[in-house]
Design a protein around this nucleic acid. Sequence first.
DNA 1: CTTTTATAGTTTCATATGTAACTATTTGCA
DNA 2: TGCAAATAGTTACATATGAAACTATAAAAG
Lengths: 144, 144
Amino acid sequence: MDHHEPLQLERFLPYRLSILSNTVSHAIAREYQQRFALSVTEWRVMAILARFPDSSAREVTEHGALDKVAVSRAVARLVASGRVSRATHDGDRRRSVLNLTPAGWEIHDVVAPLARQHERDVIDKLSADELKTLVALLDKLSPV
Amino acid sequence: MDHHEPLQLERFLPYRLSILSNTVSHAIAREYQQRFALSVTEWRVMAILARFPDSSAREVTEHGALDKVAVSRAVARLVASGRVSRATHDGDRRRSVLNLTPAGWEIHDVVAPLARQHERDVIDKLSADELKTLVALLDKLSPV
DNA sequence: CTTTTATAGTTTCATATGTAACTATTTGCA
DNA sequence: TGCAAATAGTTACATATGAAACTATAAAAG
């Protein structure tokens, strides 16, 4: 009585996405991990603060779909290493106001182009139209 | 002299992929994590063994783009909990021959449909044509 | 007001993970 | 043969991560 139905992994979407995403993120991470002693989460927080200055920790978690504990820890390390400044929000003393410091921007300005180059390596496998289509499809799938 | 170029995260592909992938995988994992005391890696190994019986540990790492240490540990736990059997390969005593046990198949036959349902929840946001297109685009992007 | 409830963020603890070093076995080749 | 190099897998260590409990502050309700 053998009647199992294994997942067709090679066509299983969550699995495909996971492999692709990990491969790409990992490739980018290799470039900055040792060079700047920067974890993936730390870099992600920096990228979010570059794009959305004056964010609170919670806003960072929302922008990045990150865990709040992970953000708390990454921010602590980034503040300790002088890459991010932390102030208290006027009018709500629970909230933090986070920004890249000049040292943080310096790193950002090196890593961001590396990340862009890696993205380019990936998307160069697609035509302009295909890329447009892919982004549109991802928009449709996005939980947000 | 302020001339920084933050990544447009909301359009940055690696970032989009990572968020989507994490969100989907996490949603699936919630269902089996506590219920079967099964980690994500363990489930992934089980799914691979269901699809590719008699795999060695190395073959599992290749099919799943997983780390060999992660696989070694997951297999150890799965063998300990009686969900996977491990034999030695005839003719190469370094290699293991891994398979789901009946207990492993029982869990597989519960979790696989859950995973499929979650995939469906995601995919249902797309038309049949759109899904076809997405899979084709992912094929193009895939490192393998 | 002042008490309850919600929110921002941190800390603690147990577990997961990655890198590098290690063991065992096999293969290649002098 | 027999020894160097490669391969399968494990172990050890340091670090990362997630869930739950905790602190501090703010908002809402009575």
